[in-house]
């Protein structure tokens, strides 16, 4: 199998791919980026926690016009994963309002983004309709 690297460092690959967040030990606020401190309470200690791979679509848009090189249309969404909001594309679904609906149940899926000059695959993530 080709060597793999996650598209972003908060995507954990392996047998059970999932997202991880930096969770403030003081107030529980969760962040996906590298932190200087907590934007909610100002404290500086975080634990790395796993985010639920199941979620509900709270908002979406179907992007039809984007920068050159970005395949359109694609579905961008805000997914509520058990109380943690996640930004992601919806994948493995027809990108039209008949197939994508507010409140639909989805689960995390990974896909190959591309392969670099050294044969390493970058692995991205999206959410797909639950149970097909």
């Amino acid at each position: 199998m080709a060597k793999q690297i996650p598209l972003v460092d908060y995507l954990e690959l392996g047998d059970d791919p999932h997202l991880t967040a930096n969770e403030c030990t003081a107030c529980g606020a969760r962040f996906f980026d590298r932190r200087n401190a907590c934007a909610s309470c100002g404290k500086t200690e975080f634990n790395r926690v796993a985010v639920s791979t199941k979620g509900e679509v709270r908002a979406f848009t179907i992007v039809a016009f984007a920068a050159p090189g970005i395949p359109v249309p694609y579905v961008a969404a805000l997914v509520d994963c058990g109380g943690t909001s996640v930004r992601a594309n919806l994948i493995n679904v027809e990108p039209d309002p008949e197939h994508v609906t507010l409140g639909m149940s989805v689960s995390l899926a990974t896909e190959v983004v591309g392969t670099d000059d050294h044969g390493t695959e970058a692995i991205g993530f999206g959410f797909e309709p639950l149970g097909g």
């Binding site: 598209l7 590298r34 992007v63 920068a67 694609y74 961008a76």
Partner: peptide, 30 residues
């Protein structure tokens, strides 16, 4: 800050304003 190995616009959601604000309206609808 996300340790991204490649640009994420279009791969992890959208950065275009019409798409961001579309979601803001859709969230209200939800």
């Amino acid at each position: 800050r996300y340790g991204a190995v490649a640009p994420v616009d279009g791969r992890i959601g959208t950065e275009i304003m019409p798409g961001v604000f579309a979601q803001i309206g859709m969230e209200y609808g939800h």
